[in-house]
Write a protein that binds this DNA or RNA. Structure first.
Length: 738
DNA sequence: AGATAGACATAT
DNA sequence: TATGTCTATCTA
């Protein structure tokens, strides 16, 4: 593949050519053809407005596929107008086509991801500026005097700015314009983003960081595809290291995309960026207003915006000249898009980097299995940051065997951990107890008849949330008030909570340590984002002695003062047959342990488990990451699952076929890798679905559920045709584009 | 994605 | 026979 020209391709269609193909952001197989109006010049990548049926839609002029498609010329309609934005670059067009092919999705659906911003939003009204003339108002009111005084320096201000500075309403300013006291000028549009300064503040880097940064900078200078894994322990300064590569891209006048899992786009990251580059990066995620999105879209397309930090959707921004991609926390599951177009943003980022001929850095303390494998096979370069920047070490997890030294019945903190927490409290240190279970108790059962409360719609356990006085289903969101009697045998006051959730753990810690200030952190914390921010601040300021938290505490936020971390139930999430369970548990607990310790204090971490002999626990205790990956890779190979196996879903729709619908539901529940999954083996894939290199593999919830391969074969043979449609997502080797 | 044209089901 | 609801099909 040749490097596409970063600027507008000069290869316009010959002037006598009056028809172009336009890809529409719809689930249509191919681009449609449109007549080009007299005098309009179009090239592939241009965004245009075209008529479609009764309405008008946005589309993208698409390279003409080989061989003129036979469309009745009488059906051709004309392009309405060109949309005022820089054209999509050839690499972007290639990206859309590749990704569509790769994800078995119509290209239009991928284009839709790129054009999803509001068309009108970015255009923005013209801003009017005002300045003071020599003329003075005939009737001089108090408000008018204030305006004249405020603008006496003669500088141009926007209307709203002038009003604000003078402390009057905008109508006063308008009145003065009418009287000729103020003159108006058209102001240039506000810049889409501030310009980062690569030399704003050069950081002090450790030798390991400097070495890694130099390698990355070289890769940026080379302007070639080069995938790298930045693999460094928590606190090793991975961010500061890749910032040097970002700085180099800025110096070269190229753009950078920094992808992060939605949750990681925190103030902490933005602050660090601002410290290094003097300004905030352009942010792109679901909370950004549509007006702002429109503006950014244009700024990114024109090349004006040089650094974008965003969630996975930022991958579809129309960069003019992308010089570097960073995928922070590359192992994070949030990169996987599971509805609409199914894709993994990390893999698509690698694809995009290849097509843009740009280096890409995947960043993680606990790389995903596939990234580790790619690195071991030499497809990615490994840059290892072995030490913490502060000099303290990431603590080893000390195992607590719950079979031997478990807590008394009805309690969850082992005596040894409780003593350690007590010591930490006396020494003025902060502790964190980690339990990946929201609510009070994960299961409620009837003491009288043994009935267990299940969700009526999806049959998983109902989780008691004592604070909200509700039973909630964590699977589907169903909720009901806590009943006073058993729904099965109607025995009153017989329902008892089983097992711990963070709420219950909180209760226990308060009992164990009456003098400690204890705070629960859970994603369902009452009071929303505001409250969460306040609590995090309180923790940071040392106003909390013990934090009891779920998954949330493992990601994003930094707790600068943690001296002790205790994992309450390390076995949660293992043993459900999920092929990713071991990997996820390892990553999560490794990250949690990494929270302990600070600049001058070595932290300690404890791991409560019933299965200390389990490979995940052994690897965590030994701190031996390589051994863990070795094992995990071997297990996959034995099961004939490629280490890359990504997703598989079979979606059946149709009213007449109830069996098909229940199959679809079962599959939706198990794909991709969320519950017990069994490989039914390679089946003869329908030719229509399998394109060349894609291997076909079906995963089902269990052997008993149904034999999918024969089901699909029957379906393809037309047996239960009904009115349904069938979509099979195929297990693809995600590196097939490398 | 919409808009629309058929296929059934139900009201008038 | 008009009207509503659900789906599959089409848009150049």
């Amino acid at each position: 593949m040749t490097k596409p020209s970063p600027v507008d391709s000069p290869s316009l269609f010959p002037s006598r050519e009056s028809v172009v193909d336009v890809l529409l952001p719809l689930a249509i197989g191919a681009a449609y053809s449109y007549r080009v109006p007299e005098g309009m010049e179009l090239a592939p990548g241009d965004i245009v407005v075209v008529p479609l049926g009764t309405r008008e839609v946005l589309g993208c002029v698409w390279p003409r596929a080989g061989g003129a498609p036979a469309v009745d010329p009488a059906k051709l309609k004309s392009i309405k107008r060109r949309y005022d934005v820089a054209p999509l670059q050839p690499a972007m067009l290639a990206f859309i086509e590749w990704m569509a092919d790769y994800t078995v999705t119509p290209p239009g659906m991928v284009l839709r991801l790129a054009l999803r911003h509001d068309e009108s939003a970015g255009i923005g009204r013209e801003r009017t500026g005002v300045y003071l003339t020599d003329r003075r108002p005939e009737r001089l009111t108090k408000a008018r005097t204030k305006v004249v005084e405020a603008l006496f320096d003669g500088f141009v201000r926007s209307k709203s700015e002038a009003a604000r500075e003078a402390g009057v309403s905008a109508s006063v300013v308008d009145g003065l314009i009418d009287d000729g006291v103020l003159e108006t000028v058209v102001l240039p549009p506000e810049p889409a983003a501030e310009v980062p300064d690569p030399e704003h503040s050069r950081p002090d880097l450790s030798p390991a960081q400097s070495e890694a940064a130099a390698r990355l900078v070289d890769a940026v200078k080379a302007r070639a595809f080069a995938p790298t894994l930045i693999d460094g322990v928590t606190g090793s300064g991975k961010t500061e290291t890749y910032f040097e590569a970002v700085a180099q891209a800025i110096r070269q006048g190229q753009q950078t995309l920094i992808l992060m899992p939605e949750i990681a786009l925190t103030q902490a990251f933005l602050d660090r960026f601002a410290r290094r580059f003097g300004v905030l990066p352009a942010e792109w995620h679901s909370a950004v207003s549509s007006k702002r999105r429109g503006k950014l879209f244009k700024g990114v397309a024109s090349g004006e915006v040089s650094v974008v930090a965003g969630a996975r959707s930022a991958l579809f921004l129309p960069f003019r000249d992308l010089g570097l991609i960073i995928v922070d926390e590359e192992h994070d599951g949030a990169y996987k898009q599971e509805d609409g177009v199914h894709y993994h943003a990390r893999d698509m980022a690698v694809l995009r980097a290849r097509l843009e001929e740009a280096p890409i850095a995947l960043v993680s303390a606990t790389p995903s299995l596939e990234t580790e494998v790619n690195t071991r096979r030499g497809r990615y370069t490994r840059l290892h940051l072995p030490e913490r920047f502060t000099g303290t070490r990431v603590p080893r997890l000390e195992p607590i065997d719950l079979r031997k030294e478990g807590p008394p019945r009805g309690q969850w903190v082992a005596p040894r951990l409780a003593r350690e927490m007590e010591c930490t409290l006396e020494a003025g240190g902060q502790s964190l107890l980690f339990l990946n279970r929201r609510g009070y108790a994960p299961l409620t059962l009837c003491r009288a008849c043994g009935h267990r409360l299940r969700c009526p719609s999806c049959s998983s356990w109902l989780v008691e949330h004592r604070f909200r006085r509700r039973l909630e289903c964590h699977q589907c969101g169903y909720a009901m008030p806590v009943p006073s009697e058993c729904p099965a045998c109607h025995e009153p006051n017989a329902l008892i909570p089983c097992g711990p959730g963070v709420e219950r753990l909180h209760e226990e810690v308060v009992r164990l340590m009456p003098n400690a200030r204890v705070q629960v952190l859970s994603s369902d914390l009452a009071g929303g984002v505001e409250r969460m921010r306040a609590e995090l601040k309180a923790i940071e300021d040392g106003e909390v002695d013990v934090v009891v938290g779920t998954q949330l505490v493992a990601k994003g936020h930094n707790f600068p003062g943690l001296a002790l971390v205790g994992v309450i139930d390390a076995d949660v999430g293992l043993g459900h047959g999920d092929p990713r369970a071991a990997e996820r548990t390892f990553q999560l607990l490794h990250q949690v342990a990494g929270r302990a310790g600070r600049a001058n204090v070595e932290g300690r971490a404890f791991l409560q488990t019933y299965i200390p002999e389990h490979p995940v626990m052994q690897a965590l205790v030994a701190g031996d990451r390589d051994a863990f990956y070795d094992q995990e890779i071997a297990i996959r190979e034995e099961a004939h699952l490629p280490p890359f196996a990504r997703f598989c879903a079979l979606i059946v729709s149709g009213t007449d076929n109830h069996a098909a619908q229940s199959h679809a539901r079962a599959l939706a529940a198990c794909a991709p890798f969320t519950s017990e999954v069994r490989v039914l083996g390679p089946a003869e894939a329908p030719l229509a679905l399998v394109r060349g290199r894609h291997r076909f593999r079906l995963l089902a919830r269990s052997e008993r559920a149904f034999d999918l391969s024969s089901y699909v074969r029957a379906w393809m043979a037309g047996a239960p045709r009904a009115t349904g449609s069938l979509k099979v997502q195929i297990d693809i080797d995600p590196q097939s584009f490398l």
